[in-house]
Design a binder for these strands. Structure first.
Lengths: 313, 313
DNA sequence: TTCCATTGTTTGAGAATATCAAATAATAGC
DNA sequence: GCTATTATTTGATATTCTCAAACAATGGAA
C-alpha cells in the first residue's frame, strides 16, 4: 500500500479559509513565502495544482475543490481528536478508576471521600475492591492504594496516611475460654488467625513493640485468610486471635463482638500509599486526588513521595 | 482559537497498528529512533503520554486509546481525500467540461467526437456552446476551443485544426434580386449581414484574397449578429450576403437555401485552438483530449502550441 | 540463575526541510 | 501610468528530522 503523506493540509485549508496566501500566513503566524512554498510542495506531491493564482487572489481549481471538500471535515475531526486528547491531561472532569483493598478504602479513602467528592463535583470515582495487586496499566486503572510494604514496581507512590494503628483482637468468648495474653510471647500459645498476601503469597508477619524494640513473632496459624475481612470474621466467630488495622474492626469493638488485647504492644502498620504509573502523572484529575489526599495526611514524618523501583519500600 | 498541529499522527497510528515501534519504523520506512523521537514529540505536544512502554512491548494508555479511536477514522478520511485528489491528475476517467462556440464545435470537435468517445470510454464531455469568451477558471471549465484570433490571455493554446475554409454566401432569391458579385469590391454595393464578437465588441473584418494579396474590406452592414448562426439564418431569409466558415452552412448549401459566391477570393479563417489554463496541464483527461485532437489535425504548417500572452496571436 | 535475543531510548553528527527577509513580478483600482 | 497589494523567487539561516551506533531494559531460554 502506498503511503500518502498528509502534511501541508493545514496550509492549504487556511488559504482557502482566509482567501489569500498573505492572510493565511498571518493566521498561521509564518511568513508569506513559507505558505507559498508549502503550497507548492503540496501541489508537487499531489501532482496537480490546487489554485488558480493571480497576484490579487487565489481561487480553487477543480482539484482544489475536491481536496477541500473531502479534507476539510476530516481535518476538523482530526484536530478535534487531538484537542480532546490534549484536554484529557488538563481536564478536571472525568472518571478516575482506582484499585484498592478494603482496608485501604477504610483507612485511607473513606474518611476523606465525602469532602473530595464535594470539592470536585466534576470527578467521578470508580472503585475496585481487590485484595490482590492488580496490573494498573493493563486493567485500565488510573491508580491504586496499598500499604507501603506491598507496592509494585515502577510506580510513583505518594504517602497519603500516617502509619496505621493496629490491634490484636479476639472474641470475648475465646478469651474467656483460653485466657487473655498479657505479653506478646503469650501469643505463641494461642490459636491465631492470620493473613496471607494474595499476590506475594507471603504470610503477613506479626510485629510487636516491646521494651522499645520492634520484634517479629510467628504464632501458630490455625486459620489463614487472604483477606483482612476474613480474619476479622473468623475472630468474631471465636476461632482465635487476629492482628490487623484497628480501623477495620471498629464496628465489632463497639458492639462487643470483638475485644482488643495487648494494646501497649501493638505496633503501627506501614502507611498507605497511592501509586500510579509514571505515564499518568499528567492526568489532572489524578493530580487533584493525589494532592487532596496528601494534604489530608496530617503527619508528615515519612517522605511525601517515593519512586519505587523493583524492591518494596 | 488555538491551533493544534496534527502531524505525528501517522507515526502514532502506525505504532498502534503494528504493535511495536520497531515494526512501525519498518512499515514507515524509517529508523527506530525516528519513530521513538516523533512519538515523544507528539506526547510532549499533547502533554500526556500515549503508551505504556516496556522494552518488550507498547500498550495504549487511556489517553492513547482516546486519541486512536477518534483520530484513526479521521486520518483515514484525510488520506483518502489526498488519494482522490492525487488520482484526479492521473485518472483517465471523469468529465471534461469545455466551452466552445457553435462554429468551433462544427469545425474542430464534431468531426472527431465519435472516435474520441470510442477511444476513451471513461471520459465524458460536457459541452457549453457559447459565443462569448467565458472565464475558463471561474466558470469551472477545463478548456475552451476558439479561433486563434480571439484567444484569451495566459492560456496554453494548442492548434487543433488547419486554417478554416470560409465562404461568402447568400440566398438564391437575394442574388436574383440584387445580382451576384463577381469581384470582392462588388460587395461594397450589397446588403451584408455581419458578425460582431460578443466579447471584444469588434465587428469581424472581412478578408479576401485577390491577386495573391490579402485585403480587408468593409461592406455596409445592414444586419449584425453576435453569432455566426444568426448571420446564416438571416442570409437564408434573403437579407443579404454573409461571410463565415464554410462548414457551418453545409446543410443550407445542400438544400439550396444558400449559394456560395466569390469562391476564388474566399480567404481561409484562422485555425482553431484548444486552450486551457496552465494549472490544468497535468489533468490527464485533458491531455488525452489535447493529444487526440492534435493528432487529428493533418496539416501542421502553423506551430503546434503557442503560449498566448496578453495580445492575441 | 545467567545469558541471549529483542526491543525502546539516547546521542551526536549529518542531512533534509522550513523559514525568513528582501528582491522581484504581476495586477486591480485609481 | 501610478500605487498599493499580492504572489513568487532567492539565498542564507535556523530548525527539524533522520540515521547509525551505543545503551538500557526485559522476557524467555539454557
Amino acid at each position: 500500500m502506498e503511503r500518502i503523506p498528509t502534511h501541508g493540509i493545514e496550509v492549504f485549508l487556511t488559504i482557502v479559509r482566509e482567501g489569500s496566501m498573505r492572510s493565511a500566513a498571518t493566521a498561521l503566524g509564518v511568513g508569506a513565502s513559507a505558505v507559498s512554498l508549502q503550497l507548492k510542495a503540496l501541489e508537487e506531491r499531489l501532482g496537480i495544482e490546487l489554485f488558480f493564482r493571480t497576484t490579487r487572489s487565489v481561487e480553487l481549481t477543480e482539484a482544489g475543490r475536491v481536496l477541500f471538500e473531502a479534507a476539510a471535515p476530516a481535518h476538523r475531526d482530526l484536530t478535534y481528536a487531538f484537542k480532546k486528547t490534549k484536554e484529557m491531561a488538563r481536564s478536571t472532569t472525568g472518571t478516575l478508576r482506582l484499585s484498592l483493598s478494603r482496608g485501604a478504602y477504610i483507612a485511607a479513602l473513606a474518611p476523606h471521600l465525602k469532602d473530595f467528592l464535594a470539592d470536585n463535583p466534576g470527578i467521578n470515582l470508580e472503585l475496585s475492591w481487590n485484595e490482590e495487586l492488580v496490573d494498573i496499566n493493563r486493567q485500565g486503572f488510573h491508580c491504586g492504594i496499598r500499604m507501603g510494604d506491598v507496592l509494585s514496581q515502577d510506580m510513583i507512590a505518594v504517602r497519603i496516611t500516617p502509619p496505621i494503628k493496629s490491634a490484636f483482637f479476639a472474641a470475648p468468648s475465646y478469651l474467656r475460654a483460653h485466657g487473655t495474653p498479657v505479653r506478646p510471647r503469650d501469643l505463641l500459645g494461642h490459636q491465631c488467625v492470620r493473613h496471607r498476601h494474595p499476590t506475594s503469597g507471603m504470610l503477613r508477619e506479626w510485629w510487636v513493640s516491646e521494651d522499645g524494640q520492634d520484634t517479629c513473632i510467628d504464632p501458630p496459624a490455625r486459620l489463614i485468610f487472604d483477606s483482612a475481612a476474613g480474619v476479622i470474621q473468623a475472630a468474631c466467630e471465636g476461632h482465635g486471635i487476629g492482628w490487623s488495622m484497628k480501623a477495620t474492626m471498629q464496628e465489632h469493638l463497639k458492639t462487643g463482638e470483638l475485644a482488643t488485647l495487648l494494646e501497649p504492644f501493638a505496633k503501627d502498620l506501614p502507611p498507605f500509599y497511592l501509586y500510579f504509573p509514571e505515564q499518568n502523572k499528567r492526568v489532572e484529575c489524578l493530580r487533584l486526588l493525589v494532592n487532596f489526599l496528601k494534604s489530608q495526611s496530617k503527619s508528615s514524618v515519612a517522605p511525601d513521595a517515593v519512586a519505587v523501583t523493583n524492591s518494596c519500600s
